[in-house]
């Protein structure tokens, strides 16, 4: 497979993640969409590292860092979800409007 093919796949994955993040009202589904978009970025980085940049380690380290950050992000996100659920008995993104003017 060529670089372009990988990039197209990454773009498709990103678009799917976008749909997931935009169309669902459930906060967990939203998180899933965001994870998909992040992974699309990882794929991009790996592909570029393989085909364009000669240095073999850069892309892998980027991806590892992304994975680490994703773990941290998910930990925080999930704790927020739990907290919201406890407070409102709901995790519908559209109903959490207490701060809305």
């Amino acid at each position: 497979m060529t670089l372009e093919a990988y990039l197209i796949v990454a773009a498709a994955l990103f678009a799917l993640g976008l749909i997931g993040a935009m169309s669902h009202r459930n906060l967990i589904a939203l998180l899933i969409g965001i994870e998909l978009m992040m992974n699309a970025a990882s794929l991009n980085l790996m592909a570029f590292n393989r085909f364009v940049v000669a240095d073999p380690t850069v892309g892998q380290i980027f991806v590892l860092i992304i994975i680490g950050l994703a773990a941290a992000e998910v930990a925080i996100f999930l704790s927020i979800i739990l907290r919201l659920y406890r407070a409102y008995r709901d995790i519908d993104a559209e109903k959490l409007t207490e701060l809305s003017g």
């Binding site: 976008l18 993040a21 935009m22 169309s23 939203l30 993104a93 559209e94 409007t97 701060l99 809305s100 003017g101």
Partner: peptide
């Protein structure tokens, strides 16, 4: 500007 984050995301993209 309805505080609807998903919409913001869409416009940004």
């Amino acid at each position: 500007q309805n505080g609807w984050m998903q919409l913001y995301l869409g416009w940004a993209i």
